[in-house]
């Protein structure tokens, strides 16, 4: 099969490209660096010619509300239009668990628009909603830091290893489109302050976590359980402890 991975140079994208190639497929890793730009439309039609599956793993370079909305809207329209022209048989995108429950957040609104464009396009698709990547935990801590204190709300949290995400995405890319949503998450459920404390401790980071009941996530108010899957979800194989030790080993 010919598979185009948009954002193939990213965290998840690079792993997926590797896995698909390993499985013997013709994979194009698409990114502005490779001359394929979903915002400008550059190189899209050429890349998509005779393509069976498009896996969209791109992300907005800016997380500012307006910019991110523009990114997913424009990218989505350009990409889906090109797919229709090329007759792509399966569009797979990576979204976020609870995206519809966190519409106070600009980033989540943009991701929701991305989902909706896909649903409305008529292109056979799979929307894979994932929880946060373990690799993203440091970022959460950073954006919540004030001086030496990390302010974290008492939210439920069930992150997943990027490796597992890539595995699930690869699997799905090689399966038939579900024309709906599939959720994936990590194997363990935690509270966010609990996990971030463990993360910082493991990294011998001097910052201290202070838990609160404000239900805040990146400045948006969400519910306790918005970040964890509600219905059936596929759970990753790598638990937090394993991931942590592999990270420390790398360091």
């Amino acid at each position: 099969m010919k598979i185009v991975v948009i954002g193939g140079s990213g965290l998840i994208g690079s792993k997926v490209v590797a896995k698909l190639s390993q499985a013997g497929h013709e994979v194009i890793s698409a990114s502005p660096a490779t001359g394929i730009n979903t915002i400008t439309g550059e190189g899209l039609d050429e890349a998509l010619a005779n393509t069976d599956v498009v896996v969209d793993l791109a992300n907005s370079p800016s997380f500012e509300d307006k910019a991110v909305m523009e990114f997913f809207q424009t990218a989505g329209r350009n990409l889906l239009a090109a797919e229709i022209r090329a007759g792509v048989k399966h569009h797979l995108a990576l979204s976020i668990v609870g995206v519809d429950l966190m519409q106070e957040s600009g980033y989540m609104r943009a991701k929701k628009v991305q989902e909706d464009l896909i649903k409305q396009s008529g292109v056979p698709h799979t929307i894979m909603r994932s929880t946060q990547f373990f690799e993203f935990i440091g970022g959460i801590a950073n954006q919540a830091t004030e001086g030496n204190i990390v302010h974290i709300s008492d939210l439920q949290f069930q992150p997943i290893a990027a490796e597992d995400v890539a595995t699930f995405v690869t699997e799905a890319a090689l399966s038939a489109p579900v024309n709906g949503i599939q959720e994936i998450a990590g194997p363990g459920r935690f509270t966010m302050p609990e996990l971030i404390t463990r993360y910082l401790e493991a990294a011998t980071d001097p910052r201290k976590v202070e838990a609160n009941q404000n239900l805040q996530y990146y400045g948006a108010k969400i519910s306790y359980a918005a970040l964890v899957p509600a219905g059936q979800a596929k759970l990753g194989a790598i638990n937090f402890d394993n991931w942590l030790s592999s990270q420390l080993a790398k360091a």
């Binding site: 998450a185 990590g186 363990g188 459920r189 935690f190 509270t191 979800a233 638990n239």
Partner: peptide, 14 residues
Amino acid sequence: EPQLPVLSQAVLEQ
């Protein structure tokens, strides 16, 4: 069967 996550002590307490 649906897969179930392992709940941490903190989640149970919560």
